[in-house]
């Protein structure tokens, strides 16, 4: 039996940009395939290009050359407006520092991605927000503002915001980097469940080997190139 076609496929992905007088190349001819429903961890030292790769995969940044297919879309060929529409439909993003809007309640923050969804009635929208909050265990914190939540709760709200549109792809940039161990555990469990139970493809950047060990596969990015990484068993434990 043939393996399923990859959900995400990079071929010769290169990203260069100008930083002052220097030309920087964080990604160089990078090849990567991720299967649908796979939970992939990306590790690497600071400046290795992890976040740049994540931005490209999430359609926030444009590769300088190469192919980047996510599902049926070649992100490298989409313009900014098309990428915005693509993100709204297919991609959920979780930031290290949550990036919740401070004046909005948890409910309103999760509701944001649905506000511009065409044809979605208010009752249905609210139902989906409630379901997303329940999914991350924060149904009872819906009307709290970010300042009234712990870091772990804030990150779970951010996760609810990322999944409320039911995207096929979830990208998370060091989602546990600012959390204590217990809060990190909860977030990682959620990401794991979303991949395992809901078939979401999850790509997570992390510095934490314990967090990486939760993933189905871990890749190490160094000097713009990807290497398979082995997490020692004692770390994984």
């Amino acid at each position: 039996m043939n393996p399923p076609p990859p959900f995400l496929r990079c071929r010769g992905l290169t990203k260069t940009y100008q930083k002052g007088p220097n030309r920087v190349t964080p990604l160089q001819s990078l090849d990567l395939e991720v299967a649908p429903g796979e939970f992939l961890a990306l590790m690497g030292p600071s400046g290795s290009g992890k976040t740049t790769l994540l931005h490209c995969i999430a359609g926030i940044d444009h590769p300088s050359s190469g192919e980047l297919w996510v599902g049926d879309s070649n992100l490298a060929a989409l313009d900014r407006a098309q990428l915005t529409r693509w993100r709204a439909r297919y991609c959920g993003y979780v930031f290290q520092l949550y990036h919740l809007v401070p004046i909005l309640s948890a409910f309103e923050n999760v509701e944001l991605p649905l506000l511009l969804t065409k044809g979605l009635r208010r009752t249905e929208r609210r139902e989906r927000v409630r379901a997303a909050l329940a999914r991350v265990g924060l149904a009872d914190r819906a009307h709290h503002r970010p300042a009234e939540l712990s870091g772990g709760q804030e990150q779970r709200v951010a996760l609810a915001r990322a999944i409320v549109t039911d995207p096929e792809l979830l990208v998370a940039d060091e989602p546990t980097g600012d959390l204590d161990r217990e809060a990190a555990r909860q977030v990682l469990d959620l990401l794991h469940e979303l991949a395992r139970d809901n078939g979401k493809t999850v790509i997570m950047v992390t510095h934490d080997p314990r967090a990486a060990a939760e993933a189905d596969r871990c890749l190490h990015l160094e000097k713009g190139r990807l290497l398979e990484a082995n997490i020692p068993a004692e770390v994984a434990r």
Partner: peptide
Amino acid sequence: RRECALLQTIGFPRRA
């Protein structure tokens, strides 16, 4: 600025 970028990240077009 970051909040505006966040909105665009989650699917708000620039005109929105």
